[in-house]
């Protein structure tokens, strides 16, 4: 079983700062991490490999330093890594990103068939949840998003059964390989690689592909050029004109009473609604 896992290196958004005057992102010193959602997919892929044999290839598109995240994935247990990097990719939106990644996966398939592709549910910087479906659609694979459990895989029949979260419940789906899966967060716990994994990761040759090496011929489908969306404006959320009005009172009881008065004064209908409800209507 050969599984490709798409991971993205993202800035740790907990540490992002915004320039107070120009409203631009200040990246200085902001550490990067593997998109946390991708780790659930990586772990699931590793489990399948452990169960059925084969290999896991991690793939990322990003600047040269994104190699760090690939090496980290190798240290967790992935077998092989491909970095897609080219200045032509700069400014890619989700359409251009999924085009580049899908083309690279096709390139990988030329030498080794791919049975499954895993992507993260979404990224914490782009947050779109579009790239996975985008890749899947281009590769003509079956799409399984928000998977919370891989119930069974039958490599001989090339069948897979998964539990997929939907709004009102869980769908149990059966489909054929090849398929693309995005895992729901919290569904498994990323493993701690062995010392041998760490040595292998530190010494591994990460394959670095330019757009051309990945088999991309039409550069106009990459980067800003290949992106239909245009970011016109970036700005800070506007502050509300008024700050919260503190209620007056000495002690908890008085404060609570004052707060309730203020609540019902500004929301008169709320009181009758609550009354109806507490009377059991």
């Amino acid at each position: 079983m050969h599984i490709v896992v798409c991971i993205k290196q993202v800035p740790d958004s907990a540490q992002i700062r915004v320039h107070p005057v120009t409203n631009t992102i200040m990246r200085q010193g902001v550490p990067t991490i593997i998109n946390p959602y991708d780790l659930f997919s990586l772990e699931e892929a590793l489990r399948l490999r452990d169960a059925f044999g084969g290999k896991v290839t991690v793939l990322t598109m990003g600047p040269p330093m994104a190699e760090d995240s690939l090496r980290k994935a190798l240290g967790i247990g992935a077998d092989d890594a491909v970095l897609l990097t080219d200045r032509f990719f700069a400014g890619s939106d989700t359409l251009a990103t999924s085009f580049a990644l899908a083309t690279a996966i096709q390139k990988i398939m030329e030498t080794e068939p791919v049975d499954m592709v895993f992507a993260g549910k979404q990224t914490i910087d782009g947050d779109t949840a579009q790239v996975g479906p985008g890749i899947c659609c281009r590769l003509g694979m079956q799409q399984l998003t928000y998977v919370q459990k891989v119930e069974s895989v039958d490599p001989a029949k090339r069948e897979i059964v998964v539990h997929r979260r939907s709004e009102g419940g869980v769908q149990v789906l059966k489909t054929s390989l090849p398929c693309m899966i995005t895992m729901l967060e919290g569904t498994n716990q990323i493993r701690y690689g062995t010392m041998d994994d760490m040595f292998r990761a530190a010494r591994a040759d990460v394959r670095v592909w330019s757009a051309a090496a990945a088999g991309i011929e039409d550069m106009t489908r990459c980067g800003l050029r290949g992106s239909p969306t245009v970011v016109k404006k970036v700005f800070a959320p506007k502050a509300r004109a008024q700050k919260a009005r503190p209620v007056d009172g000495e002690g908890a009881e008085a404060l609570a009473a004052a707060a309730i008065e203020a609540i019902f004064a500004s929301q008169p209908k709320l009181e009758s609604d609550l009354l109806k409800q507490s009377a059991g209507y």
């Binding site: 939106d93 359409l95 779109t128 949840a129 579009q130 479906p133 998003t145 928000y146 709004e167 992106s227």
Partner: peptide, 23 residues
């Protein structure tokens, strides 16, 4: 932007090769 809407929007934007802004 539900599990269904996002799943569908991601593929449809690709088949139509158009822009999609999420959330």
């Amino acid at each position: 932007a539900t599990t269904l809407g996002r799943d569908l929007a991601g593929s449809v934007a690709t088949t139509l090769a158009t822009g999609l802004t999420a959330d």
